[in-house]
């Protein structure tokens, strides 16, 4: 765990537990992020204090007990929601609205694709909107559909496809957009187990091929350990970072062998314990007030 920083708010706020980098190394920086919702029943503090960095080309998973403000955090990072305090920096630039270098894949695939557009049009629309020339657009769309294994259904409507295929379309749309950071909000929570395994491998493949930075939010412990190079464990709400864990599994992963490695079991065990602690209300020593 990194030592306490020289943050001047150190006295009043819990110290950040997430790994931070020198400024120019970080692709995505989250600094002292806090989100308080104002509701009729009074303010609700969803996220208390989050600080962590993502190196360019990193694949990090965020896990936390349900209701730990994962979606809130993702909305703040993607610029859809303004944080109450703190800031998000993408490549050194503060995020104040959805940045061009970022794409988001949502859990609800059925509600994130345009049902009035065919698969190809869905993938193409963000590029068209950026006025990318037709020839290049076609190339990007073809490549993206190819990468997710959907070159055979460009003229279908999303609702004609299975759930897993719809989520592939959403991934293809994100890939074609050529983001530097890809945020994924529990993208496989609503698909069946087998499709889920395929999609996990797809993400690893796409990540290696494109060198994109991925922040993958999930509530599935196995998934986080299998996918990530690093797992950031969140506490229960109001959220702080419970632990920032390096996943030292081999870079080549496959569903059978990786999952049966003793190290996989150990890591999974460790994350599980931490989540249980988080659920029980335990908070990291640095966050105790």
């Amino acid at each position: 765990m990194p030592s306490e920083t020289t943050d001047k708010n150190n006295v009043t706020k819990p110290a950040p537990a997430g790994r931070t980098l020198q400024n120019n190394d970080a692709m995505l920086s989250v600094r002292g992020l806090k989100k308080v919702y104002q509701t009729d029943g009074g303010p609700i503090e969803a996220v208390r204090n989050l600080t962590f960095d993502l190196r360019a080309g990193e694949l990090a998973c965020l896990v936390g007990p349900s209701g730990s403000g994962k979606t809130t955090l993702l909305k703040c990072i993607s610029g859809l929601m303004a944080p109450t305090e703190g800031q998000v920096l993408l490549d050194g630039v503060q995020v104040s609205g959805p940045p061009k270098k970022m794409a988001v894949v949502f859990q609800e695939y059925g509600r994130s694709l345009f049902p009035w557009m065919r698969v190809r049009e869905n993938v193409e629309l963000p590029l068209k909107n950026q006025r990318i020339p037709k020839a290049e657009r076609d190339r990007l769309v073809d490549e993206a559909l190819e990468a997710v294994g959907l070159s055979h259904v460009p003229m279908s409507y999303p609702w004609q496809l299975s759930g897993g295929m719809q989520q592939r379309v959403a991934i293809a749309r994100a890939v074609a957009y050529q983001p530097e950071v890809l945020l994924m909000d529990e993208p496989f929570a609503a698909v069946d187990a087998q499709t889920r395994a395929d999609l996990e491998d797809l993400i690893r493949t796409v990540w290696k091929k494109l060198g994109v930075t991925i922040l993958f939010v999930t509530h599935d412990i196995d998934e986080s350990v299998y996918l990530g190079e690093r797992v950031i464990i969140l506490s229960s709400s109001p959220t702080v970072i419970q632990e920032d864990l390096v996943i030292d599994l081999p870079a080549e992963r496959d569903q059978l062998n990786t999952r049966s490695l003793p190290r996989f079991t150990e890591l999974r065990h460790h994350v599980y314990e931490q989540i249980q602690l988080a659920k029980a209300g335990h908070r990291p020593a640095a966050a105790a007030r």
């Binding site: 959805p98 988001v104 509600r111 345009f114 557009m117 963000p126 909107n129 950026q130 957009y177």
Partner: peptide
């Protein structure tokens, strides 16, 4: 739909493009 609207927003589909590709359909 909120999710659809967020999707469009994250892909920079705003203003007239939003009306044409999201709101009207």
């Amino acid at each position: 739909d909120g999710v659809l609207s967020d999707s469009a927003h994250t892909y920079g589909i705003t203003g007239r493009a939003r009306i044409r590709h999201l709101v009207l359909p």
